[in-house]
Amino acid sequence: MKTNDVILQTVTKFVLFVIILFSIHLFFAGHYYPGGGFIGGLMTSGAIVLLLLAFDIKTVKMILPFDYIKVVAVGLLIAIGTGAGALFFNMPFLTHAYTYAYLPLLGKTSLHTAVLFDTGVFLVVIGVTMTIIQTIGESE
């Protein structure tokens, strides 16, 4: 029987952007407030799961043509590279540097290299979660 899911698809097209904006907010709030790369990646993969529920695997593969295992590899490379970058400045592994800058529109902002490490964690979490969900979700 062909089911009618117009309401779900219409709601998804709107709610998806709210969830992704919230995950970006969580990602950048991570240093001083609750949040960070891990929970931001989980929220982004939640948005992709909502897309998979409302549409199907074929459409989502057309929208997001990523090989998620390669996303894991790139994320690990960024995270380890950020950690190893401290070795070039004669500092212990995973030491992070920060500075305060005056950016337009944002005012006084603290810039940390921990954000780059968190980007790696973000990509690893998205890749691992989507690989697990696609492996379980496929019927064959």
């Binding site: 089911t3 919230f22 609750p34 949040g35 929970i39 939640g46 909502l50 409302a54 496929e138 019927s139």
Partner: peptide, 29 residues
């Protein structure tokens, strides 16, 4: 933030359960 997080997660969970009840399959190809 936690309130928004729980709201989104329960929404996705309820949608997944409802789709399982109606179609028997959660993600179709």
């Amino acid at each position: 933030d936690i309130i928004l997080l729980i709201g989104i997660l329960t929404f996705i969970g309820t949608v997944a359960f409802s789709k399982f009840l109606e179609k028997g399959v959660i993600m179709e190809y």
